Amino acid sequence: MPRTHLPSTIGLRVVAALAQHGTASAASEALHLTQSAVSKQLKSIETLVGTPLFERTSQGLTPTEAGVIYIEQARIALGALETAAVRVAALHRAQPAILVHVLPIIGDRWFIPRFSRFAELHPEIEVEFTTYAAADTVEEADAVFRFGEGNWPGWRADYLLGRDVILVGAPHLIDRAGGINCVQDIRRFPVLEHRQTPLRWNDFAEASNLHDFAPIRITRFAYYSLVIRAAIGGQGLALVPRSLIPDEMESGQLVNPLGLGFQSRNCYWLTTQATKPVSGGLATLCEWLLHEARQTEPMEGTNTRAVGS
């Protein structure tokens, strides 16, 4: 493909940010660009691709079928560039930085807001972050935040948070529909879900004795941050780990009707390579992260799994 037909790096970042944040204003803030620049970059890439990547709605931007494909490849390309940057930077260091791969929702809602405390405690430990899911970025990382049941061959997994999943909705949505006075009332509401965790509603229905549950409408999102925002906007009920939304619960933007929820098998884990020696800096970082997680979500017993390759 001629170079003039290739998207720019900033264009790829704009597409990824729009997919994650859902609006041009939020994406521009995240990228430190003007909204005009974001719109210009999106228009340029859509012209290059020859089809819209997002549908414009009153609630924001939703990826089209073509957009889902393009966003996935954009994230892979950006991940490869991040990997290259990390490798080059490491050539000039006496002590290599710790490379951590962070899931966007954990980075945005839990890890990054706390990381300044670690940096103040341990200024001698240098940490770098990646967020795009390029395979080699994940495999070469010293620590990886993952979502699942805790089984990844060759990786040691320490439970982080997210088992306590609760049903949430905006008060105005629930009030407009006559309230939720029993679990059967949930059938009257549209629901929201993350594309990669669609079975959570089945788990919730089973835990709540909600037999033959068939919601009136399901809206799926590629990012958990969009699920949360859509729930706040009154677009439907959502299932969200309690530890990701303390501010929204405290402010009343979201409520947990009847205290409904369940303990999920799928949650967030901190993983390190089982066969790779753990440096002192990495051990310090992991110990701090797990301590912070227990402050967020106290638990009893052991929550560690080591799986052989």
Rank of each mutant, 00 (worst) to 15 (best):
G162C: 04
L226V: 07
V168Q: 01
E206C: 08
G162H: 00
P246Q: 01
A17I: 00
T304D: 10
I186L: 14
N303S: 11
L210I: 08
N181M: 07
P198A: 04
A214F: 07
A135E: 13
I218E: 08
A134P: 00
A222H: 06
N256R: 01
I98N: 00
A135M: 06
P7C: 10
V68Q: 14
E46S: 11
G11I: 06
V86T: 10
V255K: 06
L258Q: 07
T219M: 12
S28Y: 03
Y223L: 00
V227Y: 00
P96V: 01
E55R: 11
F213W: 03
T51L: 09
L270I: 13
A230P: 02
G22V: 05
L6V: 12
L289M: 15
L18F: 09
A85T: 13
K40V: 12
T219V: 09
A135G: 04
L260W: 03
P52H: 14
R146M: 11
D142R: 00
R220W: 03
A80Q: 14
Q263M: 14
R200G: 09
Y223H: 15
V191L: 02
L289D: 01
L31Q: 02
T302N: 12
P96K: 07
S8F: 09
E248Q: 14
S39M: 12
L237M: 09
D175Q: 14
A157I: 05
P104I: 00
D247M: 06
